[in-house]
Amino acid sequence: MLRRRWVDAVVVVVVVLAFVLAPQAYSNETLLFQMMVYIALSQGVNILYGFTGYLPFGYVGFFGIGAYGASLLMLHLNWPPILALLGGGAIAVLLGLVLSPLLRLSGAYFAIASLAASQAVYLIVSNPALQNVTYGPYGIQLVSQFNPTLSYYVMVVILALTVAVVLYIRRSRFGTALQAMRDDPVSAAMAGVPVVRQRTFAWMISAGIAGLVGGAFAWQTSVFYPDAVFSLSISIFAIVFTLFGGAGTLLGPLFGSVVLYGMYNTIGISDPQYFQLIYGLLIILLVLFLPDGAASLLKRRGSHVL
């Protein structure tokens, strides 16, 4: 048990150090920041999909509401950025709570319903009728709060927190119960696991992570339109990175994010359709030939994947 704790601590420290030191070696801080965003988001997807089997196509809704929540708290109530970030996370958790009845639906219904929910939130936030509150389609400007360095390090902290949460879940009774529920919800309930409550809890943790990340993204970017933080592609990236690396593990989604997001930046930014084509094909091939992701290749050879 003690040795496991050490391993966990080392993993968190390595991740933190990697992103603290990376700007010294590589000058594109924006790319590093966005890589952290996607690692954290794919871990958020991982908590839900990897441990409960629920696939949140609409995950971006939490990211977007976190970005908007944090921004509006800064703009309307003059909250300092870090406090506003926490506020954005809290609002995302609240949205998760409001949407938690969706978790009564079975897999495919849930996936599509969550997609519909995120679109609904986007259409509400970006609606011209709410221009006085959300600035509608005209987007957010946080110029006076712009602080790329501090927001970068705050993102490192959020990432570390996310990694720690995933590690905790993997090790804990809660995590085992989630996996049991994913394998068979009826058996889990008969084993005494309060299935809906546990699932809701995982959903809200997952929502909170996306909300915090969204807030950090808003702060770092400081000028953005609603479609930038509600774009379905954000959900898609997080899901593909998770599936590629291997859901249910810590390192899988991390690996997936670093490799695929790196790839996206070399080929995708100017012609995103090529990348879309590649990951579309990747999804099809993964599902047909490697449903448990890259991590399962190692597992097949007998290694334990953290």
Binding site: T176, Q179, A180, R182, D183, D184, A188
Partner: peptide, 13 residues
């Protein structure tokens, strides 16, 4: 069963 858990974990849950 909880197919992805071990026999022991099944009982422990």
């Amino acid at each position: 069963p909880f197919g992805s858990l071990t026999v022991r974990q099944n009982v422990e849950v």
